[in-house]
């Protein structure tokens, strides 16, 4: 394998892992609460900017800055639950779509006022360090992104499938009313879902910062790729989001290098539309394309 190909694959995996985290946040919320959250991208931006505040503006070491930013995102998830989810819960799909988009606009412009329009460049814990992988020079941060993303995904899996709280969350996702009858505190599970969404998007935000820039407009492009990822992987499938995210990340990097850098995004959306038309359940999903 050529050096360039290895570099492209690693950076594709890194970007894809970020999309997978964002896609998972989207799926967790949609499965548990039925809300299609179009402000997911703005949550990523907030996560990134919180790390700017703790890491750059407050000057904390990253070992303290990252946990503090994530704590902020957990809180943000709770606020989102109270201010956005409660009033929009059980409204028609379109109301939720427009409502979350409007919240996205509010978040984005609040970020603009708070952090300004000049992008920040958050530093990576590994600086500009380069590692040798099969003879190719790979940025250490890219490897860090892949490692942290998979750690998060592993923790999420363990939480959902190995703990009683995770089992309760799954019960709520499957049948809210039955879960309530069994004495599960449904509302508490909803809060928890939003906290997890905050942590996942927040992690994605921390990780992309050093790769790209912290910019108030960064949310939408990331969210759009995450949409594409979960449609390709399967709308309600956790492994689907991971595989879909990585496919989109790889397609983006390899497509830019070997096909056309101008149309790399078009390629991704073309594949997404093809999946919607031919296999709306995605790679891993069950047959749910007709579900409204």
């Amino acid at each position: 394998m050529s050096q360039q190909l290895i570099q492209l694959i690693v950076s594709g995996l890194a970007v894809g892992a970020v999309y997978a985290l964002v896609g998972l946040a989207f799926i967790m919320v949609n499965e548990a609460t039925g809300v299609v959250n179009f402000a997911t991208g703005q949550m990523v931006a907030i996560g990134c900017f919180l790390s700017v505040t703790t890491g750059i503006q407050m000057g904390l070491p990253l070992a303290a800055a990252y946990p503090l930013a994530l704590a902020g995102m957990a809180l943000f998830g709770m606020v989102f639950y109270a201010v956005v989810f409660r009033p929009l819960q059980d409204r028609p799909v379109v109301t939720v779509i427009i409502g979350t988009v409007m919240i996205g606009i509010v978040i984005q412009n609040s970020a603009l006022i708070t952090w300004g329009s000049v992008p920040f460049r958050p530093r990576s814990p590994f600086g500009r360090q380069v590692v040798d992988v099969f003879g190719a020079a790979i940025s250490a941060h890219a490897l860090f992104v892949i490692a942290v993303s998979f750690l998060m995904i592993g923790l999420l899996y363990a939480f959902i499938y190995r703990t009683t709280i995770g089992a309760r969350m799954r019960a709520v996702a499957q049948d809210r009313d039955a879960a309530r009858l069994m004495g599960i505190g449904v509302d508490r599970m909803f809060v928890l879902t939003w906290v997890i969404a905050g942590l996942l998007t927040g992690t994605a935000g921390l990780l992309v910062g050093p790769m790209w820039f912290a910019d108030v407009n960064m949310g939408d492009p990331i969210a759009l790729k995450a949409f594409a990822a979960i449609i390709i992987g399967g709308f309600s499938s956790v492994p689907g989001a991971i595989v879909g995210g990585i496919l989109v990340g790889l397609a983006e990097m390899l497509g830019a290098a070997y096909v056309s850098s101008a149309y790399k995004d078009g390629l991704v959306f073309l594949v997404m539309i093809l999946f919607l038309l031919v296999r709306p359940q995605g790679i891993f999903g069950e047959r749910i394309g007709q579900r409204a």
Partner: peptide, 10 residues
């Protein structure tokens, strides 16, 4: 042929 948020995303 798609409905709801699937159509929205397409």
């Amino acid at each position: 042929r798609l409905k709801g948020h699937y159509l929205a995303l397409a």
